[in-house]
Write a protein that binds this DNA or RNA. Structure first.
Lengths: 233, 233
DNA sequence: CTCCCTAAATAAACACTGTTAGGTAACTGA
DNA sequence: TCAGTTACCTAACAGTGTTTATTTAGGGAG
């Protein structure tokens, strides 16, 4: 409410353009996602997102309740693509053991290809994860409205179970086997992400070796495929 | 410089007490550490620490350059105790395989007993870790001033190497073996910490199973101790 | 015992964060 | 052309880490 009326030359009031809610939502999520990848999970502020989109920070709250709500959408996307990757991995292979191995590779590669999102999903305290559903995949409530996250875990769980059904595991508790497999995968992915300064040996060999580890642990000693699954090591 | 002089009854000017730098530093670190455990890594602000200690937030900067500097001290403590735990584990067992197994249990138990500090050390982006030295344990600079962090990794590295020297591993690259072992341990610890809502099977069994996994992966198939090391599974 | 000087503590401000309230104006349908 | 809806903006809130200038406590020297 200062002196200037509506001259237009004074660069104080950038005339607004109005977009459809869907379009703006898309812009906001896209901006947030690319800021993630570029500057890391922590350095994503509402102001930065807004500036990237070309609006004010407050305008975001027209489309998202929270900052967390934006993250939630990103997480959903992450899980949707993870689920897709796991399902194609499974579709491309019928043999249970090789199928499990492929799924695990898919998980690892997906995580390593989206380090900042992986960090957000699996390493931040808050985390949208609980609400994304992965954290409680075996409860009834979560099963009623299965999220992409819980479905992703289910794919792995089923792959493990199929191996057990084929009579090849040395232990019957498939829950335990699936958890161990998940932990092994998460171990490499998260360490490679957080400690990228560490003088790791070749990344590809680490992944292969870790998968070997899991399979030697899963299978009973007389399984005929043990050698075949243990690649070069 | 308001009206009140030095009545003493008015609760406005809490007369300051002056402490020795060492004592204050200790108070600050202790407050920060207990706030960690109580309210989680993120909810530790300078104001909260200061209030806990009974001083102003700015007073902290007399003793620490940064917030990160406080965390750094906490991390050092975490690594110092980890190193101690690893060394007693090694001292109590001479047989290389059992020794490695004990060290790994020590790592896991230490992490699970200090979840928030583990989170800070191994899962936060910043992280003091790089400066704590673990991130670059094999470079010359870091070797010249070995931190407790890099020493901790070295203990595990040496334990793995001893197993290899005993001719029991199925692979010669001990760096790779150590990395895989670390990843397997970190996998369970970090997942158990971040996903405490997840309906895990019994924690003790998970740990045991994961250790089995690593050992079956490390040892060559004809190793006479394979069965002995694979406990109940 | 007094003085004084170092430095531990303070108050006040900086720039930043997420979030909210209320006003303005752009588009939509009549 | 004229509402009505609502996307957007401005301004402010409380919180964050950090810096500056100022006060004052406490120990050493005279």
């Amino acid at each position: 409410m200062k002196t200037q009326g509506k001259q237009g030359a004074v660069p104080s009031k950038p005339r607004r353009k109005r977009l459809s809610p869907e379009e703006r939502r898309g812009q906001i999520v896209a901006a947030a996602r690319s800021l993630f990848a570029a500057e890391g999970t922590d350095n994503v502020s509402m102001r930065k997102i807004a500036k990237r989109v070309g609006i004010t920070q407050a305008a975001i709250y027209q489309h998202f309740e929270n900052k967390e709500a934006i993250f939630f959408v990103i997480i959903e996307g992450f899980f949707a693509e993870l689920l897709a990757a796991l399902e194609t991995a499974i579709a491309e292979e019928t043999e249970p053991l090789l199928r499990l191995r492929r799924s695990m590779r898919a998980y690892i590669e997906h995580g390593l290809s989206r380090p900042e999102e992986y960090r957000l999903v699996f390493m931040t305290p808050m985390s949208g994860l609980a609400r994304a559903g992965l954290a409680v995949p075996r409860t009834d409530e979560a099963r009623n409205t299965p999220s992409k996250g819980s479905l992703s875990f289910d794919v792995l769980d089923r792959a493990v179970r199929d191996v057990a059904l084929a009579g090849r595991t040395r232990y019957a508790d498939t829950d335990l086997l699936a958890e161990a497999a998940w932990a092994a995968m998460h171990g490499i992915v998260s360490l490679l992400i957080t400690h990228d300064q560490f003088p790791w040996t070749d990344r590809e060999r680490i992944v292969e070796f870790q998968l070997d580890l899991v399979f030697r642990g899963l299978l009973h000693d007389k399984c005929p495929m043990r050698q075949a699954l243990a690649g070069t090591f």
